[in-house]
Protein backbone atom coordinates (compact mmCIF):
# COMPACT_ATOMS: atom_id res chain seq x y z
CA UNK A 1 0.00 0.00 0.00
CA UNK A 2 2.74 2.37 0.99
CA UNK A 3 4.78 1.41 -2.05
CA UNK A 4 1.79 2.00 -4.30
CA UNK A 5 1.24 5.42 -2.77
CA UNK A 6 4.92 6.21 -3.15
CA UNK A 7 4.91 5.12 -6.79
CA UNK A 8 1.87 7.28 -7.47
CA UNK A 9 3.55 10.29 -5.83
CA UNK A 10 6.76 9.64 -7.74
CA UNK A 11 4.88 9.50 -11.03
CA UNK A 12 3.18 12.78 -10.20
CA UNK A 13 6.43 14.55 -9.26
CA UNK A 14 8.28 13.04 -12.20
CA UNK A 15 5.64 14.18 -14.66
CA UNK A 16 5.71 17.74 -13.40
CA UNK A 17 9.52 17.84 -13.29
CA UNK A 18 9.60 16.56 -16.84
CA UNK A 19 7.14 19.16 -18.07
CA UNK A 20 9.12 21.83 -16.26
CA UNK A 21 12.36 20.89 -17.94
CA UNK A 22 10.96 19.95 -21.34
CA UNK A 23 10.90 23.64 -22.22
CA UNK A 24 14.54 24.22 -21.32
CA UNK A 25 16.61 23.67 -24.45
CA UNK A 26 19.58 21.39 -24.01
CA UNK A 27 22.97 22.70 -25.00
CA UNK A 28 21.93 25.98 -26.62
CA UNK A 29 21.66 29.30 -24.91
CA UNK A 30 23.73 30.84 -22.19
CA UNK A 31 22.52 32.95 -19.35
CA UNK A 32 23.41 36.64 -19.38
CA UNK A 33 25.13 36.32 -16.02
CA UNK A 34 27.41 33.57 -17.22
CA UNK A 35 28.22 35.46 -20.39
CA UNK A 36 29.14 38.54 -18.40
CA UNK A 37 31.32 36.56 -15.98
CA UNK A 38 33.11 34.87 -18.87
CA UNK A 39 33.85 38.14 -20.60
CA UNK A 40 35.06 40.05 -17.57
CA UNK A 41 36.90 37.40 -15.63
CA UNK A 42 40.39 37.85 -17.07
CA UNK A 43 40.52 41.68 -17.09
CA UNK A 44 38.75 42.10 -13.75
CA UNK A 45 40.02 39.31 -11.54
CA UNK A 46 43.15 38.06 -13.33
CA UNK A 47 42.17 34.44 -12.81
CA UNK A 48 42.23 32.09 -15.78
CA UNK A 49 39.78 29.57 -14.35
CA UNK A 50 36.35 31.17 -14.46
CA UNK A 51 34.78 28.79 -11.95
CA UNK A 52 37.42 29.70 -9.39
CA UNK A 53 36.94 33.39 -9.98
CA UNK A 54 33.18 32.99 -9.47
CA UNK A 55 33.55 30.91 -6.33
CA UNK A 56 36.17 33.09 -4.68
CA UNK A 57 35.85 36.53 -6.15
CA UNK A 58 32.36 37.25 -7.48
CA UNK A 59 30.68 35.11 -4.82
CA UNK A 60 33.32 35.15 -2.12
CA UNK A 61 30.76 35.89 0.55
CA UNK A 62 28.94 32.71 -0.44
CA UNK A 63 32.13 30.71 0.00
CA UNK A 64 32.61 32.22 3.45
CA UNK A 65 29.15 30.94 4.34
CA UNK A 66 29.95 27.54 2.90
CA UNK A 67 33.12 27.24 4.94
CA UNK A 68 31.08 28.23 7.99
CA UNK A 69 28.59 25.46 7.20
CA UNK A 70 31.42 22.94 7.04
CA UNK A 71 32.76 24.19 10.36
CA UNK A 72 29.30 23.88 11.91
CA UNK A 73 28.98 20.35 10.53
CA UNK A 74 32.29 19.32 12.06
CA UNK A 75 31.37 20.88 15.40
CA UNK A 76 27.90 19.37 15.36
CA UNK A 77 29.29 15.96 14.55
CA UNK A 78 31.59 16.21 17.53
CA UNK A 79 28.66 17.28 19.70
CA UNK A 80 26.42 14.43 18.50
CA UNK A 81 29.07 11.80 19.08
CA UNK A 82 30.15 13.26 22.42
CA UNK A 83 30.87 10.65 25.06
CA UNK A 84 31.03 7.75 22.65
CA UNK A 85 34.78 7.74 22.38
CA UNK A 86 36.51 4.53 23.22
CA UNK A 87 38.72 1.73 22.13
CA UNK A 88 37.53 -0.15 19.06
CA UNK A 89 37.14 -3.78 19.99
CA UNK A 90 37.51 -5.35 16.53
CA UNK A 91 39.94 -8.21 16.48
CA UNK A 92 40.84 -7.82 12.82
CA UNK A 93 41.94 -4.28 13.28
CA UNK A 94 45.69 -4.65 13.13
CA UNK A 95 47.14 -3.51 9.79
CA UNK A 96 49.96 -5.42 8.16
CA UNK A 97 53.47 -4.04 7.97
CA UNK A 98 53.20 -3.48 4.21
CA UNK A 99 50.19 -1.26 4.77
CA UNK A 100 51.92 0.69 7.55
CA UNK A 101 55.04 1.33 5.48
CA UNK A 102 52.99 2.16 2.43
CA UNK A 103 50.83 4.61 4.33
CA UNK A 104 53.87 6.39 5.68
CA UNK A 105 55.41 6.52 2.21
CA UNK A 106 52.25 7.66 0.45
CA UNK A 107 51.14 10.38 2.86
CA UNK A 108 53.67 13.05 1.76
CA UNK A 109 52.88 12.45 -1.89
CA UNK A 110 49.15 12.82 -1.28
CA UNK A 111 49.67 16.02 0.70
CA UNK A 112 51.88 17.30 -2.13
CA UNK A 113 49.12 16.57 -4.64
CA UNK A 114 46.54 18.35 -2.50
CA UNK A 115 48.79 21.39 -2.05
CA UNK A 116 49.48 21.48 -5.79
CA UNK A 117 45.78 21.42 -6.49
CA UNK A 118 44.87 24.27 -4.18
CA UNK A 119 47.85 26.45 -5.03
CA UNK A 120 47.07 26.20 -8.74
CA UNK A 121 43.35 26.69 -8.18
CA UNK A 122 43.12 29.81 -10.35
CA UNK A 123 45.01 28.24 -13.27
CA UNK A 124 43.89 24.63 -13.55
CA UNK A 125 40.76 22.76 -12.47
CA UNK A 126 40.63 22.34 -8.75
CA UNK A 127 40.88 24.54 -5.76
CA UNK A 128 40.65 24.69 -2.02
CA UNK A 129 37.81 22.25 -1.54
CA UNK A 130 39.30 19.57 -3.74
CA UNK A 131 42.81 19.95 -2.33
CA UNK A 132 41.53 19.92 1.24
CA UNK A 133 39.55 16.77 0.55
CA UNK A 134 42.61 15.07 -0.92
CA UNK A 135 44.62 15.97 2.20
CA UNK A 136 41.84 14.53 4.36
CA UNK A 137 41.99 11.33 2.29
CA UNK A 138 45.71 11.12 3.08
CA UNK A 139 44.89 11.43 6.77
CA UNK A 140 42.34 8.64 6.31
CA UNK A 141 45.08 6.43 4.86
CA UNK A 142 47.22 7.18 7.92
CA UNK A 143 44.32 6.33 10.24
CA UNK A 144 43.72 3.04 8.44
CA UNK A 145 47.34 2.10 8.05
CA UNK A 146 48.93 2.94 11.39
CA UNK A 147 47.54 1.20 14.41
CA UNK A 148 48.19 3.72 17.14
CA UNK A 149 47.53 6.82 15.06
CA UNK A 150 45.33 9.55 16.38
CA UNK A 151 44.98 12.94 14.79
CA UNK A 152 46.18 15.80 16.92
CA UNK A 153 42.94 17.67 17.44
CA UNK A 154 44.61 20.71 19.02
CA UNK A 155 46.85 21.15 15.98
CA UNK A 156 43.91 20.63 13.65
CA UNK A 157 41.81 23.25 15.41
CA UNK A 158 44.70 25.74 15.43
CA UNK A 159 45.23 25.19 11.69
CA UNK A 160 41.55 25.56 11.00
CA UNK A 161 41.19 28.74 13.06
CA UNK A 162 44.25 30.32 11.44
CA UNK A 163 42.88 29.54 8.00
CA UNK A 164 39.50 31.02 8.90
CA UNK A 165 41.14 34.14 10.32
CA UNK A 166 43.16 34.51 7.11
CA UNK A 167 39.98 34.39 5.06
CA UNK A 168 38.20 37.00 7.16
CA UNK A 169 41.26 39.27 7.35
CA UNK A 170 41.63 39.14 3.59
CA UNK A 171 38.04 40.31 3.41
CA UNK A 172 38.43 43.06 5.99
CA UNK A 173 41.56 44.40 4.28
CA UNK A 174 39.32 45.27 1.37
CA UNK A 175 37.24 47.40 3.75
CA UNK A 176 40.38 48.96 5.21
CA UNK A 177 41.51 50.13 1.78
CA UNK A 178 38.21 51.82 1.17
CA UNK A 179 36.62 49.15 -0.97
CA UNK A 180 34.00 46.50 -0.35
CA UNK A 181 34.30 43.38 1.78
CA UNK A 182 36.40 40.73 0.03
CA UNK A 183 37.29 43.08 -2.79
CA UNK A 184 40.66 42.65 -4.38
CA UNK A 185 43.44 44.96 -3.12
CA UNK A 186 46.53 43.26 -4.53
CA UNK A 187 47.91 43.78 -8.05
CA UNK A 188 46.47 41.39 -10.59
CA UNK A 189 49.69 40.32 -12.28
CA UNK A 190 49.97 38.45 -15.54
CA UNK A 191 47.13 36.02 -16.14
CA UNK A 192 48.47 32.49 -16.29
CA UNK A 193 51.24 32.90 -13.73
CA UNK A 194 51.11 31.32 -10.29
CA UNK A 195 51.52 34.65 -8.51
CA UNK A 196 48.62 36.48 -10.06
CA UNK A 197 44.89 37.08 -9.59
CA UNK A 198 45.18 39.18 -6.43
CA UNK A 199 43.74 37.61 -3.31
CA UNK A 200 42.32 34.49 -4.98
CA UNK A 201 45.33 32.20 -4.25
CA UNK A 202 45.53 33.43 -0.65
CA UNK A 203 41.87 32.71 -0.01
CA UNK A 204 41.98 29.37 -1.74
CA UNK A 205 45.04 28.25 0.23
CA UNK A 206 43.24 29.25 3.43
CA UNK A 207 40.12 27.35 2.31
CA UNK A 208 42.25 24.31 1.48
CA UNK A 209 43.84 24.18 4.92
CA UNK A 210 40.49 24.78 6.60
CA UNK A 211 38.64 22.09 4.69
CA UNK A 212 41.49 19.61 5.11
CA UNK A 213 41.67 20.17 8.86
CA UNK A 214 37.90 19.98 9.31
CA UNK A 215 37.43 16.81 7.27
CA UNK A 216 40.42 15.13 8.94
CA UNK A 217 38.87 15.97 12.31
CA UNK A 218 35.52 14.56 11.17
CA UNK A 219 37.12 11.32 9.99
CA UNK A 220 39.12 10.90 13.19
CA UNK A 221 36.06 11.56 15.35
CA UNK A 222 34.04 9.01 13.41
CA UNK A 223 36.81 6.40 13.51
CA UNK A 224 37.39 6.65 17.24
CA UNK A 225 33.73 6.15 18.10
CA UNK A 226 32.77 2.93 19.79
CA UNK A 227 30.24 0.55 18.33
CA UNK A 228 27.76 1.42 20.99
CA UNK A 229 26.86 -2.01 22.33
CA UNK A 230 28.62 -2.69 25.53
Amino acid sequence: MKKLLAAFLLGFIGYYLYTAFAGVPFGENKMEVGKDYLETTVPKTGAVNTVTSIVVNYRGFDTLGEVTVLFLAATGLGAILFGMKGKPEDKHREPSSILTTGAKALFPIIVLLGAYIFIHGHLTPGGGFQGGTIIATGVLILILGIKSFHANHALLSVMESLAGITFVVAGILGLAFGKNFLENILPLGTPGQVLSAGIIPIIYIAVGFKVGAELAGVLDTLMSTTRGEE
Binding site: F26, G27, E28, K30, L38, T41, V42, V48, N49, T50, V51, L123, T124, P125, P191
Partner: peptide
Protein backbone atom coordinates in the same frame (compact mmCIF):
# COMPACT_ATOMS: atom_id res chain seq x y z
CA UNK B 1 26.13 22.75 -21.14
CA UNK B 2 26.54 24.19 -24.62
CA UNK B 3 27.04 22.07 -27.72
CA UNK B 4 30.57 22.37 -29.07
CA UNK B 5 31.67 24.34 -26.04
CA UNK B 6 34.90 24.12 -24.12
CA UNK B 7 35.63 24.12 -20.42
CA UNK B 8 35.49 27.62 -18.90
CA UNK B 9 39.24 27.93 -18.43
CA UNK B 10 41.32 30.34 -20.51
CA UNK B 11 44.28 27.98 -20.43
Amino acid sequence: FIKGGTAPIFS
